[in-house]
Design a protein around this nucleic acid. Structure first.
Length: 767
DNA sequence: CTCTCCTGTCATTCC
DNA sequence: AAGGAATGACAGGAG
């Protein structure tokens, strides 16, 4: 039931967004499967914030080091882990890890405010890709971390000082019988309030100590700076190729070896082919695994995926400029096969040839350039006719015309395929068919999903400008409260260490507690003085503004030892112990004047409940009322002889105080949820863009390989002679590749039938 | 004056 | 059953 509810509330929303991003059918699937854990986290809630747990138990058992299950810190932890995992999972199967990052506990809280939130909120992509994604470890969500820990000052600063007029309404809501709050009570209450204002000068506790900003957490630049030299096939050598060599090449299904001959104007086709040649050894390295089989050792895959991931992150921010590096496959990368094409490689009896193509593919990835991104849309329409035509017009001429069509630049962008396609005799049989089908499917995908790079960029803009998702976290209360959290932690944690009375794990002893416990109930005279001071000063909104949104949780603070050493106080306008001072007996040597302002501050920090409590002469602080564990709270109540009205007020104060904190936490969680979603959207957008780029590159290389195979085919076929020394007619004969790699010269009709057969298989399979 | 945002509060549900 | 967390809804203050 719980999961269902959560799913329906948070999860469904996230899932919807994710689905819309993922699209209908994506080759992303292969990646998403590997992203399952993060995806599930996204769907079911990125953090514990969406899972209700037994906080009481947890809080009581975590014994001082407990991260509040709902705390933003835990959110940070999970978010960081999730994002990191997502990054890792982008290109490989995710191996869940259980390591706990040290930054979680020991991170400098201050760095968060400037380090992470502003960047994440305003410019969600401000940092480099690697930084951005690996950032969580460093500071993506640090501010929230500390916010989650510090909630102790909520009564000190988060409350706008009330005017006494509010009391009338609230008195009715106090839960006590209305008769309790009769006019005399109310009158007295208001009088007390007034007196409090006048006497606020006695409060001398606001130190206003300037807090030191903690050393900022610097985002560690995760960029490796590694450069992976693109491996370029050196197959452009213009050497004479004998028929035997051609056949050998074809048989070896390695048409792109060094010795492969290409027509002189091949350069016009592969305009982006780098001219540099590569060492033969490397070439062999690249090709050898392709010839051996499809199996891909996991370690190799792992390395490859890691490499891809790293390079991906680098290329992400540089966009397409560096993407050519991205796909310079390391030696032996049959993994590229699995990477994207393997699911779409139904080239049944041409396995080896296909692998060779992939090898070339990986080599040709270096050809990728931004301009290519315009290719898929253009070529998709032109390549489509190839599929049916391959099987039907096999008898059409195959020769010089096709050669010309193949090797002229128009071929590259597919325009030549428009005309050449129907005429192609499909000498390559199922190979090209399948490849074409794959390509077309990819193209279709690109079209139907709007994977046009331009559209992708538009999409990004759209998301960036989405008012619903883009939040300026630098202005968000969370970032504001983060500093306060650290500051408040200093006051409360230090005092809590001194207050051994409330040493239980859930004790929320703040400074007021220990002091209060020692001092006890303040005298009436003090109260009166404070009340006088209260009436003297008007409301100053600045204070409430600076002091609001304090999500501090005293219990968490007391449970975090490292915060005890944070000697900062960012509560510039907030009296660290406003409540305490109010209850403390007035210092005898209290000077009026300078102290008066502080008293005003203090008075304005007081919430309505505090005023009420004072008016009702509640003998302990609201902080205590709210934050004490139930047992201690009841114990406290039993110590005093309290009237029914007082008890009722106390319980109301406790209830409201608890609820106030809960509301703050709730809102914070909401905000975090939105930010998480925002971040997830960014990640998915990046993934999407990356996949789009990869797809474009794959298509491009595939096309190039097809052309090369075509040219080789024609080269070989053109050199074949019958027993009379005459060339074979392309309309009557065709070369066919057998499963064992041999090449046969068969009649065209037979080739037609086989091609048709192979064409149907994938179609049926796709249904 | 209106709108928006923030915050506190209440009611309710759930654990 | 009580305590409390979570959250939607509402109101009021402030800009």
């Amino acid at each position: 039931m719980l999961s269902l509810k959560k799913y329906l509330t948070e999860g469904l929303l996230q899932f919807t967004i994710l689905l819309s991003l993922i699209g209908v059918r994506v080759d992303v699937d292969t990646y998403l499967t590997s992203q399952l854990p993060p995806l599930r986290e996204i769907i079911l809630g990125p953090s514990s914030a969406y899972t209700q747990t037994q906080f009481h138990n947890l809080r009581n058992t975590l014994d001082g080091y407990g991260i509040h299950p709902k705390s933003i810190d835990l959110d940070n932890y999970f978010t960081a882990r999730r994002l990191l995992s997502q990054v890792r999972a982008l290109d490989r199967f995710q191996v869940p890890t259980t390591e706990v990052n040290a930054w979680l506990v020991h991170r400098d809280p201050e760095g968060s405010v400037s380090g992470s939130q502003p960047s994440s909120g305003l410019t969600l992509e401000s940092s480099s890709g690697l930084q951005d994604v690996t950032g969580p470890d460093n500071g993506v969500r640090e501010s929230e971390t500390e916010q989650g820990f510090s909630e102790d000052l909520e009564d000190l600063g988060a409350v706008a000082p009330p005017v006494s007029g509010d009391l009338t309404k609230e008195d009715i809501d106090l839960g006590a019988g209305r008769e309790i709050f009769d006019y005399s009570h109310r009158q007295k209450e208001q009088d007390v309030d007034k007196d409090l204002r006048d006497g606020a000068e006695q409060d001398d506790t606001w130190s206003g100590e300037g807090a030191e900003a903690l050393a900022r957490n610097l985002l560690v630049d995760g960029e490796t700076g590694e450069s992976f030299p693109a491996q370029v096939p050196g197959g452009e050598d213009q050497t004479a190729l004998s028929l035997e060599e051609c056949l050998r090449l074809l048989e070896a299904t390695c048409p792109f070896g060094e010795n492969a001959e290409f027509p002189a104007d091949i350069s016009s086709i592969t305009e982006a082919v780098p001219s540099e040649s590569e060492p033969p050894g490397l070439q062999n390295h690249l090709l050898s695994p392709l010839l051996t089989g499809t199996e891909s050792p996991f370690d190799l895959e792992q390395q490859w995926q890691d490499l891809m991931s790293i390079m991906e992150m680098q290329a992400m921010e540089v966009n397409t400029s560096t993407s050519e590096i991205l796909y310079s496959a390391p030696p032996g990368d049959p993994l590229s096969t699995n990477y994207s094409l393997a699911p779409n490689t139904p080239i049944n009896q041409n396995v080896s040839l296909h692998q060779a193509s992939l090898g070339g593919c990986s080599q040709d990835f270096s050809l990728f350039s931004p301009e290519v991104e315009s290719l898929p849309v253009a070529s998709s329409s032109t390549l489509l006719p190839l599929v049916p035509s391959n099987s039907t017009s096999l008898n059409s001429t195959f020769g010089s015309t096709n050669l010309a069509g193949l090797f002229f630049p128009p071929q590259l962008n597919g325009s030549a395929n428009d005309t050449a396609g129907p005429e192609l005799p499909d000498p390559l049989g199922g190979l090209l068919d399948e490849a074409m089908l794959d390509e077309i499917s990819l193209m279709d995908l690109a079209i139907e999903e709007g994977f046009n790079p331009v559209q992708a960029s538009q999409l990004e803009e759209e998301f960036d400008s989405d008012s619903g998702l883009s939040l300026d976290s630098s202005h968000s209360p969370s970032s504001l409260s983060s500093s306060e959290g650290s500051s408040s932690s200093s006051s409360s944690s230090s005092s809590s260490s001194s207050s051994s009375s409330s040493s239980s794990a859930s004790s929320s002893a703040s400074s007021s507690f220990s002091e209060e416990g020692a001092v006890g109930y303040s005298s009436d005279s003090e109260t009166l003085d404070l009340e006088e001071a209260e009436g003297a000063v008007g409301y100053q909104p600045e204070y409430s503004k600076f002091c609001r949104m304090s999500y501090q949780d005293p219990s968490q603070l007391s449970c975090l030892p490292y915060l005890e050493h944070v000697g900062h106080n960012h509560t510039y306008n907030m009296a660290p112990s406003a409540l305490d001072s109010a209850d403390l007996p007035p210092p005898s040597a209290l000077k009026k004047g300078s102290k008066e302002k502080q008293a005003d501050f203090l008075d304005k920090q007081m919430s309505r409940d505090e005023h009420r409590a004072r008016a009702m002469k509640i003998p302990f602080t609201n902080d205590k009322i709210i934050n004490l564990p139930v047992e201690e709270f009841n114990e406290l109540l039993s110590k005093y002889q309290l009237s029914e009205a007082q008890l009722s007020l106390i319980r109301d104060i406790r209830r409201r105080g608890k609820n106030k904190m809960a509301a703050q936490n709730c809102r914070k969680r909401k905000l975090d949820t939105i930010l998480n979603l925002e971040r997830d959207v960014e990640d998915l957008q990046r993934d999407k863009a990356r996949l789009l780029r990869e797809k474009v590159e794959f298509l491009r290389s595939l096309r190039q390989m097809k052309q090369k195979v075509q040219s080789l085919y024609q080269e070989v076929f053109g050199r074949l002679r019958d027993e009379n020394g005459r060339p074979y007619s392309p309309s009557q004969y065709a070369l066919q590749y057998a499963g064992d790699g041999s090449v046969l010269l068969i009649p065209r009709t037979l080739a037609d039938q086989q091609a048709r057969r192979q064409e149907r298989k994938p179609k049926d399979r796709r249904k």
